[in-house]
Design a protein around this nucleic acid. Sequence first.
DNA 1: CCAGAGTGAGACACAAACGTCTCATCTGCG
DNA 2: CGCAGATGAGACGTTTGTGTCTCACTCTGG
Lengths: 184, 184
Amino acid sequence: MATDRDSVLEAAVGVLSRRPTAHLDEIARAAGISRATLHRIFPGREALIREVGALGLRRFSTALDVAQVEQGSAEAALRRLVDAVVPDAALCAFLAGENQLYDDPEINDLWELQDARVRALFLRGQQEGTFRVELSAGWLSEAFFDLVAGIGWAVQEGRLAPRESAFSLAELFLDGALRRPDTP
Amino acid sequence: MATDRDSVLEAAVGVLSRRPTAHLDEIARAAGISRATLHRIFPGREALIREVGALGLRRFSTALDVAQVEQGSAEAALRRLVDAVVPDAALCAFLAGENQLYDDPEINDLWELQDARVRALFLRGQQEGTFRVELSAGWLSEAFFDLVAGIGWAVQEGRLAPRESAFSLAELFLDGALRRPDTP
DNA sequence: CCAGAGTGAGACACAAACGTCTCATCTGCG
DNA sequence: CGCAGATGAGACGTTTGTGTCTCACTCTGG
């Protein structure tokens, strides 16, 4: 059952995002199964890592879908994306930390696809005048992902309340840290 | 000689920030020395990692010093900090990715010290009205570090030009991604 | 109650990385 | 030239994680 697989993968993320070198033993215990069963589901460590990455990318992809990032104003689209992606921030944190994943061409291609959608969103926003043009769309895309990953880590470590996370992300990314006098 | 040690550590960062599980063999080759000599300088892998972390924290600490983050307006202080920390962004990226480092109480204490200085900067900025108060000083501190680490990765992978990095970081963090109509 | 599938616990061999050692080579200096 | 110190190359044993296997147990459906 795919549900079972996914639940194991979610447990794996909880461990791996904190300690990428965690033993399979530890991951199995975190998932509430034995190492033997873990091996029955995933052929080996490499496959497990790859599946976790693939899950993260699928989640990110559906987040882009449900947020309808290609529709409406770029700012509203980004705010929708923030709301949609925050629940899966831990998976994104894993994706950000596991550069080794991108050695796999399949994973890499999938990532390029999603990244292109995000870059396109920023490019569109720049063309319609809502996003600043002094900052490249590539950097905006990268920084956005960095902050999502940061949210994932911070929430997981208990340094940030989950309820605040979407607000904190959107506000900082869009408006910055500087307080500005009310400009009506 | 400490200089020699540091040059090895810098080479180690170049490898480890990309692939934290890199073999000592690889690190030694990147540093231009043999595995035997690497073992002569550092007792083992654990010690090496710890020393890299300590170097990163020392650099971050001196960046806080040379930026004089406790002096002048909080915004100007942060801009100085950005300029001072960007050259060592790769080391910060390593610090961000290696959560395991903070198991060592010495490293952890040193980190707490630096983090407290950054949080104090944001707190001061909030009190003097330059930083937004809707975002907690803790989150601002965390997000700032996330972006510094992101800069480190992006520059290392060639996705961001080093010359742009300080500007990109300061502008996005302080003013956000949204373009705003000129507000004189 | 029984049969069968699925699971957990443990044993075992294998591979890889690590830490240590030895020895040949190179370099700088008297 | 000769010597001392440092380095590189390589071999060796050890440790650790992994992958595979077996066996006993449990749970479910007939």
